Simulated scan of single mutants.
Amino acid sequence: MTDETKYTRQTVTSVHTWVPDKLFSLRVTRDRAFEFLPGQFARVGLPGSEAPDGPPTLWRAYSMVSAPGENALEFYSIVVPEGEFSPRMARLAPGDALYIDKTPFGFLTLERFAPGGDLWLLASGTGLSAYLSILRDESVWQSYERIILVHGVRTAAELAYRAEIEAMRGRPGGAQLVYLPIATRETLPGMPRARITTLIADGGLERLAGRTLDAETAKVMLCGNPAMLADARKLLGDRGFKPGRRGIPGNLAVENYW
């Protein structure tokens, strides 16, 4: 993609490092014409290494962390050491350019569901991004009885945005949020050391949330690595969860964040 009518040049305004050389977030300016739904992603571009001052030739998909009403765009990323894109993105500093496709993409949005019941947001790693955009938007708090956010990571250091999420419980209506940070390589206070899929299979996730994964009333979003998604989809499919089709709302929405 090199057609300048398809993208805009935006400017990095801030960078936040969560785990050095591994996890970071950055904020960039936002074109006024760029509109998106909470949960969607953008195609983000950089010039190739052979022409660093040239037009963008490398493109990757990143969910917006920011809500649609914010003036900036925010993205959360892992650094893939051998990758062509993320290490360069991690080296950006305020004032540098980042290119944004004018068209948002993705269907991990609340429009996939009928309102009411419980909303389960299950993420591994940087799959958390889309859910932050959803939680930062006012509409979600008015549409569901309970919101259960499950973030699966390896270690506590990888629980990016944890303070912000926990602070959400102090906002009006925030008591309906259940936040379950789950680590696989260390034990967090009050949490088991386990994978999300293990907790779905043995009922542990429901016990921690104090809610049942009932296909009649619950809606589930999945966002993360392919292995987690494949296993979770099967486990939830066996319990009656399935995506919508032909305009009929479902109770399962999935985004491969890889």
Rank of each mutant, 00 (worst) to 15 (best):
S124L: 10
A93Y: 08
T126V: 14
Q142P: 06
L110I: 03
Y131M: 12
W141D: 02
H151F: 05
T57S: 13
T109L: 11
L119K: 11
R88K: 11
Y131A: 09
S129I: 00
R88P: 00
V150R: 09
V153D: 05
G152V: 01
L110G: 12
R136E: 12
D101Q: 12
F85C: 03
A61T: 07
E70G: 07
L121N: 02
P115D: 04
G69A: 15
Y131K: 08
I134Q: 10
A51Y: 02
L149Y: 09
M64W: 05
S129V: 03
R88F: 10
K102A: 15
S63K: 08
E111R: 15
G127V: 09
G106W: 04
L149T: 10
Y99T: 08
P68N: 10
G117F: 02
H151M: 03
V80G: 05
G127D: 04
V153G: 04
A93L: 14
S139F: 02
V140M: 11
V65F: 06
E138Y: 06
L132Q: 00
L122S: 09
L119W: 06
R60G: 00
W141S: 07
I134W: 07
F75E: 11
Y131D: 02
G54N: 03
E82F: 10
P87L: 10
G127E: 06
I100P: 05
A114M: 03
R88M: 04
A67R: 00
F85K: 07
S133H: 10
S66N: 09
S133Q: 01
M64E: 01
L92Y: 09
L128E: 09
G125L: 04
R112T: 11
L110V: 07
F85R: 01
I100F: 12
S86V: 06
G117M: 03
D101H: 14
Q142N: 12
A90N: 11
R136Q: 14
G127T: 09
L108Q: 00
D101K: 10
Y99I: 02
